[in-house]
Structures are given as C-alpha cells and as structure tokens.
Simulated assay, not measured.
Amino acid sequence: MPGKNIHVVPAHDGWAVESEAGGPRQLFDSQEQAIAAGTEKARHDQAELLIHGRDGQIRERNSFGHDPRNIQG
C-alpha cells in the first residue's frame, strides 16, 4: 500500500526496519545495513523513510513517493 511510512529503529541487538503497513520486522547488525534495506523498501512502496537515532528520535526523513507538499515554483 503506497504512502505508509518505513522506519529504521534501534533494536535489542542492532537495528530494525518496520513498516506502518505491517509485515515482518527486518533485523540488521548495523544502522547502515538497515538504512539501505529501508531505503529500498521505501522506494518500492513509494513511502517515506524515517531514520531514528539510538534515542528513538527521528533524525532524518526521505520521501520516495507522492509528496503531499507539492509546491509549484
């Protein structure tokens, strides 16, 4: 389902990729691996990728789908 956000979040023993659309949580040893997998999934799903830091706060966002803030100019 297009438009559901993908999150890269800290996990117990590494990093995880989670989708708001559901599905299995993917686990990775490094944040770099999780970001690469999350980016691919966000591109495929035309979704927004939200990358969280170790503290759980969003530190970066990347949109790979329809951007609702379509500003002409």
Rank of each mutant, 00 (worst) to 15 (best):
D13K: 07
Q31G: 09
G56V: 04
I58R: 15
H52I: 00
Q31A: 10
A34G: 01
D29C: 07
H12G: 09
D67M: 03
P2V: 14
D45I: 04
A37D: 09
G23A: 11
S30A: 09
I6P: 01
G3I: 05
L50F: 13
D45V: 00
Q26E: 14
A21R: 06
G22I: 13
G22H: 04
R54H: 13
Q33D: 15
Q57Y: 15
D45G: 02
S63H: 06
H66V: 01
P2S: 15
Q46E: 03
A42T: 07
I71W: 08
G38I: 15
R69A: 13
D29V: 04
L49M: 10
D55Q: 04
V8R: 01
V17D: 15
A16C: 10
G23D: 12
H52L: 12
L50I: 07
I58G: 05
A16T: 10
Q31F: 01
F28S: 12
S19F: 11
L49Y: 14
I35T: 08
V8T: 01
V8K: 00
P24W: 05
G14F: 12
N5E: 07
A36P: 00
F28G: 09
I35C: 04
A42P: 04
I58M: 15
I71V: 08
W15R: 02
N62E: 14
I71S: 12
P2D: 12
S63L: 06
P10R: 07
Q33G: 13
G14W: 05
Q33M: 13
A47S: 12
G73N: 05
A16I: 03
L27E: 12
L49P: 04
L49W: 11
G3L: 02
E32R: 11
T39W: 04
S63C: 11
A42F: 10
R59W: 15
N5L: 06
V17A: 08
Q26H: 11
P68G: 09
A37P: 02
L50C: 10
S19R: 10
H7E: 14
Q33A: 15
G53M: 08
V9F: 01
F28E: 15
A21W: 08
A21V: 03
S30W: 05
R25Y: 10
E20A: 11
S30R: 12
G22W: 11
G3E: 02
G73R: 01
I58W: 08
G73C: 02
G65S: 09
H52N: 08
S30T: 15
F28C: 07
R59P: 00
R59F: 14
I6D: 00
Q26I: 04
F64H: 09
H12A: 14
I35W: 12
F28K: 04
R69C: 08
G22A: 05
G56C: 04
V8W: 06
D55I: 06
M1V: 01
A36G: 03
G73P: 02
I6H: 01
P2M: 03
W15V: 01
A21N: 08
L49V: 09
R43A: 08
L50V: 04
H44A: 15
N70P: 00
W15F: 11
R43C: 03
H44Y: 15
D67Y: 05
E40R: 14
Q57T: 13
E32W: 07
